[in-house]
């Protein structure tokens, strides 16, 4: 029994870390530009599919992963420059529709340029499971956790210590005041999209050995990352990390103890419950306006 619980916790933390990386992309973009980027899941897909196809073309795995990362970053920057910036007058509703359109477009292109089959990648340290207190742990899970912790640490250092990071925070808080201080808010938004693209690609590369990849994988992963971002409070980076873990854990515990058929519904039940009970998210501090 205890072994089962530990097993579900391991699985929950592993997928939770993936959701956290995706949720970070949603949150960073939202705080810099107030855009909910529904194409975030496609960066995850590009990270996985891009690595698979670059590796199939003969590149060694680390170079292939880097190529996929560059692809996702370019796609994210292209999305900001070519679609979101030109449509900035379309209002919030319009921008949501632009990002949905872009996600359908990227998915459609991926289905043509790559293919429509499932693919996998070799795990970074083999597939021999580690035995921990009666539960098994896939070595890839350790890579995922380590990478996520490293990303969290790097982001914290970047935003708290570096001048660029502080400039990005300033531009998110008040674009006009930031501009007066010599920061170009347009560049900040562009770099935030690039960062979100990179985070998505990293998640896609890391999860593929455990979950396979496919040109449509970004839809569900993106939506679950979005759910994690809402649970944590949109715009809060620590919230996104915590939200990812919450969704991952609840999902795996549901699959283990209640019903594996409804595993995928958990994230969305949590979205609706959070919106009904605590719309600012579990960790959001921004006051919600009641009208």
């Amino acid at each position: 029994m205890a072994g089962d619980l530990l097993q579900f916790l391991f699985a929950g933390i592993t997928v939770g870390a993936i959701y956290a990386l995706i949720a970070l992309g949603f949150s960073l973009v939202y705080s810099a530009s107030h855009v909910i980027n529904f194409a975030q899941g496609e960066f995850v897909m590009l990270g996985g599919m891009g690595t698979v196809f670059a590796a199939a073309a003969g590149l060694p795995l680390p170079i292939a992963a880097l190529a996929a990362l560059v692809l996702a970053v370019l796609a994210a920057m292209g999305l900001e420059r070519l679609a979101i910036h030109p449509a900035r007058d379309a209002g919030l509703t319009g921008l949501v529709i632009v990002t949905i359109g872009a996600s359908i477009l990227i998915r459609g292109l991926a289905g043509i340029v790559f293919d429509r089959n499932f693919h996998t990648l070799p795990a970074l340290s083999g597939d021999a499971p580690l035995l921990v207190a009666g539960a098994t742990l896939h070595p890839q899970a350790l890579w995922i956790l380590a990478a996520t912790l490293l990303v969290a640490l790097a982001l914290w250092l970047f935003f708290a210590r570096s001048l660029t990071g502080k400039a990005m925070l300033a531009a998110a808080v008040d674009p006009l005041a930031a501009e007066l201080a010599g920061i170009d808010p347009r560049r900040v938004v562009l770099w935030t999209f690039a960062l979100a693209g990179g985070l998505g690609a990293l998640a896609g590369f890391l999860v593929t050995p455990l979950a396979q990849t496919h040109f449509q994988i970004g839809v569900l992963l993106g939506l679950k990352g979005f759910a994690a971002a809402i649970v944590g409070g949109l715009g809060s980076a620590p919230g996104a990390m915590a939200g990812g873990l919450v969704i991952g854990l609840v999902e795996q515990l549901t699959a283990g103890y209640l019903s594996s058929a409804y595993k995928d519904a958990v994230a969305f039940v949590v979205i609706v419950l959070v919106l009904l009970l605590r719309p600012s998210g579990l960790f959001g501090t921004r006051a919600i306006e009641r009208v």
Partner: peptide
């Protein structure tokens, strides 16, 4: 058929930019 999603996605993005 294969391009259906490409066309739908492009239509959404271009529509919002040029015919908001």
């Amino acid at each position: 058929h294969d391009y259906e999603h490409v066309v739908l996605g492009l239509a959404l993005v271009l529509g919002m930019i040029f015919l908001p």
